[in-house]
Design a protein around this nucleic acid. Structure first.
Ligand code: MN
Ligand code: MN
Ligand code: ZN
Ligand code: ZN
Lengths: 129, 129
DNA sequence: TGTATATTTGCAACAAAATTGCATTAAGCA
DNA sequence: TGCTTAATGCAATTTTGTTGCAAATATACA
């Protein structure tokens, strides 16, 4: 297998993930790197991190793609926890404790799950009364 | 409320949905209309159909947006059934009978959900052995 | 059946997001 | 320290979706 290298840009991106409590889009991450590297490089770093299962990709109800660092015990292939996408503040957060249960016909083979809930997050729910 | 009109383009799009067993992207639909109308018109027709709850929007694991005609009893606000996204043939299908159950912390207000499973569909599972 | 009117459309321009090719740089290992 | 190959920068391109406005047309109604 191809080895993946620890570059300055990759380290910076990982540090950004470490500091963020919510999932981040490519554009948000790129802005936070503050011209450390090219836009394209950020795309490629994210691809690698997803491939290496260090980061997972989350798709909001509107199709917006965000990324978050995995917090679970490491080699996990299936990220079967829920994500919450707030309609008001637009933040996406992992709800690692929320796992959907479901029954699927036997003739399907499931490799991955995307379970995203949208609505109002606790913050926005409070301040919007 | 504003009434929505039955135009030739809209009728054509609905017919396309009627014939398709899987969810379709804007581009796929546009190609199937065979130059009956403009690209922008297809976008606007889809918007209207989604608004009128005749069609629902599905976001695949990779962020690709597709549309499918609703088969449930009509006025439903929350499309809480699962969708299956095949990694091989890239088709997305509604699994209307599959509904996830989950427990979410009380301080969240859920308005909509997206539950997409990905892997191999029955067709690809069979032919790939 | 004609007419008014609000909806829908085409077109062109724009904007954002993502991808590709290729020459150059630099990480990691012997 | 030098070699190999992964990673990067940059420019060009593609894909996807949006907007404004004038022209077309579906529908209600006289
Ligand atoms: Mn997560
Ligand atoms: Mn469906
Ligand atoms: Zn919020
Ligand atoms: Zn398939």
């Amino acid at each position: 297998m191809k080895t993946t290298r620890n570059t300055t840009a990759k380290t910076a991106v990982l540090e950004i993930f470490g500091k963020s409590k919510t999932a981040l889009s490519h554009t948000e991450i790129y802005k936070l790197t503050a011209d450390l590297c090219d836009r394209v490089t950020v795309y490629r770093i994210l691809d690698r991190l997803v491939n290496d299962d260090i980061v997972h990709k989350i798709v909001g109800l509107d199709g917006t793609v965000k990324y978050a660092k995995c917090h679970h015990a490491h080699p996990v292939t299936i990220h079967n926890h829920a994500h919450f996408s707030c309609e008001n503040c637009l933040e996406i957060t992992c709800l690692e404790s929320v796992k959907p249960s479901y029954i699927i016909p036997h003739n399907y083979k499931v490799n991955d799950i995307n379970f995203t809930l949208s609505g109002l997050c606790p913050n926005c729910l409070n301040s919007n009364i």
